[in-house]
Nucleic acid binder design. Structure first.
Length: 580
RNA sequence: UGGGGUGUAGCCAAGCGGUAAGGCAGCGGGUUUUGAUCCCGUCACGCGCAGGUUCGAAUCCUGCCACCCCAGCCA
């Protein structure tokens, strides 16, 4: 518990404008209102929250929201947030996931309080508390099989029946629990249950399981235990031990709250945390369920948990998302209690917004066709004229040098022989007409050369002298501006274009298997792209706007100066191609 | 069906008895050596439905409807 300064723990006044860089600008929501009140009333001096992932998979965009909520609230109110692994089920968990999760949280820019914590840190205490409940007559060892227990539990409309083992003596229960711990019994043969109410309308209170037998090695505790606490018997107690004041989770745990409170009530815990629930974040055209994401990985539909098409934190990172853009996205979504589906366009907006502001510009030709400047030597001495272009149109990010040569590449889609195309409809190069080469000359297309199959192999053009950084003479009106790369000085690169993994807006929903909605064309590898020379020196994970194309990142693992590889994060907003 | 939760624009939502914020998407226009950015304008006579209370209701009351979650020895 640390100090808490002013008497007025600021209700965050909302700056309704969209989030800018910083951590702060959260609008008021029902949880921050509660926190404000708790702080003001003196119910707590400062707040402690926690982010409690189970290490059974990678973190995804939904977790990012939970992380932003928990760490964000702590930061906003000057409290602390713990990272705690809810590692109560060794059969699903792995150290590799622990490591990946820590890396993701750090990358997002959050720092947890003290050391990382584990539910397993408290296993001794939990065991002692289990004995305490037995001693109080509030728990018993039950020998029912899973199927029997399910029958005994009853149905929504029918109350359950008491287990025949419900009335065991304290001594017998103590003895049995001890022997469960010692490994005397088989998995599934016995469990420890709380003695609450088999007729409760809330299923979670029909004598919930506290401990079950799992003879498995645990990634943190090794072979020390062969009984493991259930989620319910761990979560509230962990919160209490850590002094968590506001335990924020998702809606599906609302039904567990009475049990959470029952346990805190009946155990000699050091503090009394409160649980609050908010709606899970869902995004359309994607799935956010560790089980399903794991299936995509296991079935090799994608390249791993960090495949750029995955909605995982590490996937988005590899795709080129910035941590800031992910945080802006999450912070821009209000915390509410309804479970809605956010349009992926909202996520795309965040990354464009960030990268437009912060990514240097560069040129890359994705589908090259050669363009030769036939009058090059008439106006330019030597083989190369170096053009100088700003790295960013608005922010001073330095300049880059672009070698302009007689042979260039432009994109096939930026040229047409169809002279009837209106200037409004086609603002690119047309045979016999002018176009501006970005940061260089205005040129005119004179003729095309084709192969026997009728494919254009080369465009012959002439430059208009004196047009670098200057308007062309009267009468010459370029149709538009296109990008280019020197065919002789530019570098070859591989560019991967990603599209959404699913064609269906909600692959999760409906009766059919989500795998049937997979987008077969979610990855396209272009290995004959040309980039301006400076780009090969880009550091892995550096991001650029390839002008007129979109935002790209030098691949975290596979990019090198000898083999440049860029991933497309997201295209530029495109208001024109939509009609066609 | 028993319990829990939620219904405000295409999507996410604010709203807490005084006459419907904001963001995304869309649409119209302006600037532009990126069909980007930026700028301006536009976008609910209406708040799941039906009644009621009130001078006044998205907000309070009653009834109904729809959707989500729970019924694992998962979390």
């Amino acid at each position: 518990m640390s100090n808490h300064k002013s008497a007025t723990p600021g209700i965050p006044h909302n700056s309704s404008s969209s989030d800018t860089a910083g951590a702060g600008s959260k609008v008021s929501n029902f949880i921050s209102q509660i926190i404000s009140e708790d702080l003001q009333s003196g119910k707590c001096q400062s707040i402690v929250t926690r982010f409690p992932p189970e290490p059974n998979g990678y973190l995804h965009i939904g977790h990012a929201k939970a992380i932003c909520v928990n760490f964000g609230l702590a930061e906003q109110f000057g409290g602390q947030c713990n990272l705690r692994f809810d590692d109560t089920n060794p059969s699903k968990e792995e150290q590799a996931y622990v490591d990946a999760i820590k890396a993701d949280v750090k990358w997002l820019g959050f720092q947890w309080a003290d050391d990382v914590k584990y539910a397993s840190d408290y296993f001794d205490q939990f065991y002692a508390w289990a004995q305490h409940l037995i001693a109080e007559g509030k728990a018993y060892v039950c020998d029912l099989t899973a199927e029997q227990a399910s029958e005994y539990r009853g149905w929504a409309t029918e109350p359950g029946k008491d287990s025949p083992y419900r009335q065991r003596s304290v001594d017998e229960n103590m003895d049995l629990l001890e022997r469960m711990k010692e490994g005397e019994f088989d998995e599934g043969s016995r469990v420890l249950r709380a003695k609450i109410d088999m007729a409760s309308p809330n299923m979670n209170l029909r004598d919930p399981i506290l401990y079950r037998i799992r003879k498995q090695t645990h990634h943190q505790t090794g072979d020390k235990w062969c009984i493991y606490p259930s989620y319910d018997f761990a979560h509230g107690q962990e919160d209490a031990i850590e002094g968590v004041t506001h335990s924020i989770c998702t809606l599906e745990f609302a039904d567990h709250r009475p049990l959470y409170e029952w346990l805190l009530e009946h155990l000699p815990v050091p503090s009394k945390p409160k649980q609050y629930e908010f709606g899970r974040l869902n995004v359309n055209y994607t799935v956010t369920s560790k089980r399903k994401l794991k299936q995509l990985v296991d079935d090799k539909v994608v390249d791993g948990w960090d495949d750029p098409r995955m909605p995982t934190i590490s996937g988005m990172r590899r795709r080129g998302f910035t941590s800031q853009s992910i945080r802006n996205f999450c912070n821009g979504l209000p915390i509410s209690k309804s479970d809605g589906v956010v349009d992926i366009a909202q996520l795309e907006f965040s990354i464009r917004e960030d990268l437009d502001k912060n990514a240097p510009r560069a040129m890359c030709v994705l589908d090259p066709v050669k363009l030769t400047i036939s009058n090059f030597s008439e106006y330019i001495g030597g083989d190369v004229e170096t053009m100088v272009a700003p790295a960013h149109p608005k922010t001073d990010m330095g300049q880059r040098q672009l070698p302009f040569t007689a042979e260039l590449y432009i994109d096939r889609a930026d040229f047409s022989e169809d002279t009837s195309l209106s200037r409004k409809k086609f603002k690119r190069l047309v045979l016999g007409d002018y176009v501006r080469l970005r940061s260089a000359y205005v040129i005119r297309a004179e003729e095309v050369i084709k192969d026997s199959g009728g494919n254009i192999t080369q465009i012959i053009a002439t430059l208009v002298p004196g047009t670098v950084g200057e308007n062309p003479p009267e009468g010459i009106k370029p149709r538009g501006v296109i990008h280019w790369v020197s065919a002789t000085e530019g570098k070859k690169a591989t560019v991967r274009i990603y599209d959404r993994l699913f064609n269906h807006e909600s692959p999760d929903k409906g009766e059919s298997d989500f795998m049937q909605y997979l987008n077969k064309d979610s990855l396209q590898v272009l290995d004959n792209c040309w980039v301006e020379p400076g780009l090969v020196e880009a550091e892995p994970e550096s991001r650029f706007q390839f002008e007129r194309e979109g935002y790209f990142v030098a691949d975290r693992y596979e990019h090198s100066s000898s083999g440049p590889v860029f991933n497309k994060a997201i295209g530029l907003r495109d208001t024109w191609s939509k009609g066609s």
